[in-house]
Amino acid sequence: MEKDPNAILLGEDILDPYGGAFKVTKGLSTKFPQRVFTTPISEASIAGLTVGMALRGMRPIAEFMFGDFITLAADQIVNHAAKYMGMYGDQMKLPMVLRTPVGGGRGYGPTHSQSLEKMFLGLPMFHILAPSHFVHPGEILVQAISGSYPTLFLENKLLYPEVLKLEQHSGVINRTVHFDEHNYPVVVLSNFPDKRKADIAIVAYGGISRLLGPVLNQLAQEEIWITACLPVSLSPLPIKHIQATTEGIKKILVIEEASPAFGWGSEVSAALYDAHAGQLDGPILRIGAANSVIPASKPLEEKVIVSEEKILSAVFEVMAW
């Protein structure tokens, strides 16, 4: 906002001293009072205004208080944001970002814990990004709003308190970063030092990153070697980069935050089957949240969403094939 006077922020309850339900915008309304707008509870219009501003050369960023409420803006996303760049036969740009906290683990219950990205995956001319704590989310946000495309920016709630892990080596974990066609990072983690091929490739995104650190550490102790690929861009899918990291690895596990039916993992798996036909040792295993509501009761919620235990048992299942 300091660099670009066209950057505008809008959303519910984002003014200081409150600074947004998850405090992401805290301080901004004090620093940029003319460019931070607290809105009525009108998600369709928040998205609609964002689109209109982007059409007129601004770089608006809107906050949706919970990712679950993005459904109220579905028409704006599908029929407006994702259409203007493609339907007028011109080279229009539509830089705008809808940011929103997603995912469970905080006991918010069925309508405040979902990961609804699958509803919007695959829309032409619309990007969906999910940073992890292995990249700098702020830099990616700036990149998205400085670019050309309307973008949904997913922030896993449990990542908010995490410390960014941007080092090349941290304990047994190595981190390298590639960049996809739109210059978004594709992070590759491994839990072994040498150039050997991993036993299992994991493909995941967003909040799963929080679980991968401990999981990779533990598996290293058991001498199970993992390469994990975490693209920031969920849609469009940087499949070439994902395929390059899974190439030559015989077992693949795909993990997503949402329930896996008809989801991101299905698309990734289909593309990986295409790329690695005949080279895999058994099927690609997909895991995610249970196909149920996300319950408020914390112990039950933990059984529904993806956890370290679930990833570990998936890894052992794949290893046994």
């Binding site: 505008i8 003319q34 460019r35 369709a44 219009s45 998205a47 609609g48 205004l49 964002t50 689109v51 209109g52 501003m53 982007a54 059409l55 007129r56 050369g57 601004m58 608006p60 028409d75 704006q76 029929n79 407006h80 259409k83 203007y84 339907m87 007028y88 011109d90 229009m92």
Partner: peptide
């Protein structure tokens, strides 16, 4: 779905209305 210079049309009833309000906000800020 027509666009030329500062005119924009879209075929979903109602959806253009917040777009217009957003455009008005942009021009006001500018």
């Amino acid at each position: 779905h027509i666009h030329r210079e500062n005119m924009y049309t879209n075929g979903v009833q109602g959806g253009i209305v917040p777009n217009a309000v957003g455009a008005a906000l942009a021009e006001k800020i500018k």
